[in-house]
Computed example of a mutant assay.
Amino acid sequence: MKKVHDNLFDGIIALPSFPVVFVTVKSNIMVAAAFHFYSFKPPSVMVGIKPEKYTYELITSSKEFIINIPTKEQLDKIHICGTISGRNEDKYQKASFTPLKGNKIDSYFIEECPVNLECQVVHHIDYEGSHKWFIGEIKEVHIDENYIRDDALMFWLGQFRTVGGIIEGASNDELLKKG
């Protein structure tokens, strides 16, 4: 039997984990878990950023961002980049990351991350709330040939998690063949 909850926040905390990503804009890095797929055609993703963050200012002015998918082995670098401001410090240097200039946009991506999505902002959702959302059309994709999607990190309510196994559906190889 289901119970009706008076606290509407209970509905939010019941959601499953979200992928952790590094959002890079110009030469800044931000850690975000407010990230999601948006559209297949055109291929697009969306990221939620709090307006008081330096990254929000950079995305608003540049109209671009890069999504960098870290692995579970990079948790220490997530902590570094998630605890200091890029307004005052070089997060690439602090986390020992290599910045590489995007091919389609003017921002830098993180060489050590196995997946990088260069995105051009096509819409900014300024809905009243804690995060403002940017929808980015993917302009170029960089994927390491040894990337395993299950090595990605998930985050929700203070917990880092890894992705579980496939219960039902196409294998990763079958999905890549459909490409």
Score class of each variant (00 low, 15 high):
I78V: 15
D150K: 12
K177C: 03
Q93L: 06
V31S: 05
V115G: 00
L8R: 10
P99S: 13
I105G: 01
V47E: 03
K77N: 06
H36K: 13
S85Y: 01
F109E: 03
V121D: 04
H142F: 13
E128F: 08
N88T: 12
Y38G: 09
G129T: 05
P51T: 04
N7L: 10
P70A: 06
A33D: 14
I148A: 04
D10F: 02
T60N: 14
I29E: 07
K50E: 14
A152H: 04
F35D: 05
F97R: 01
K139I: 03
T162G: 11
V25E: 14
M154C: 14
I167Y: 12
S96I: 07
K63P: 00
S44P: 02
L153K: 00
W133A: 08
R149D: 04
V25Q: 13
T55M: 06
Q159A: 04
G48E: 08
K91H: 08
K94N: 08
Y92A: 00
L15A: 09
V122M: 07
K26G: 10
N88W: 10
C81G: 06
T24S: 15
I135P: 01
S62T: 12
V122W: 00
S107H: 07
G169A: 08
I135D: 00
F35L: 08
T71L: 13
F160K: 04
F97K: 00
K178Q: 12
F22W: 09
G48K: 06
N146R: 06
H5Y: 15
S96K: 14
G179Q: 08
V163S: 06
V47H: 02
L58R: 06
A34E: 05
F109V: 11
N68W: 04
S96G: 10
F155K: 04
K3A: 07
S62P: 02
K41G: 07
F134R: 08
V20Y: 09
F65Y: 15
K94R: 14
N88Y: 13
P42M: 07
G11K: 05
I167E: 13
A95E: 05
P43R: 06
V31Q: 03
V163A: 09
G86N: 10
T162P: 02
Q159H: 08
M46A: 12
M46K: 11
A152G: 15
C113I: 03
Q120E: 15
K50N: 12
P19C: 03
L15C: 09
F160W: 08
V25L: 11
I143E: 03
G86Y: 13
P70S: 07
T83A: 10
N28M: 07
F35R: 11
D76E: 14
K41H: 14
D106A: 15
I110P: 00
I166V: 15
S130G: 03
L58K: 09
L117N: 02
F9K: 13
M46V: 12
A32Q: 05
K94P: 02
W133Y: 14
F22K: 05
D90H: 05
N7C: 07
A152L: 05
H124C: 04
M30T: 11
T98P: 01
E128R: 08
F65D: 05
C113L: 03
F65K: 09
D10G: 00
H131Y: 15
S17D: 10
A32P: 10
K104R: 14
H123E: 15
N88F: 13
A170N: 13
I143N: 00
L8T: 10
T162E: 12
I49C: 04
F109G: 14
E73G: 02
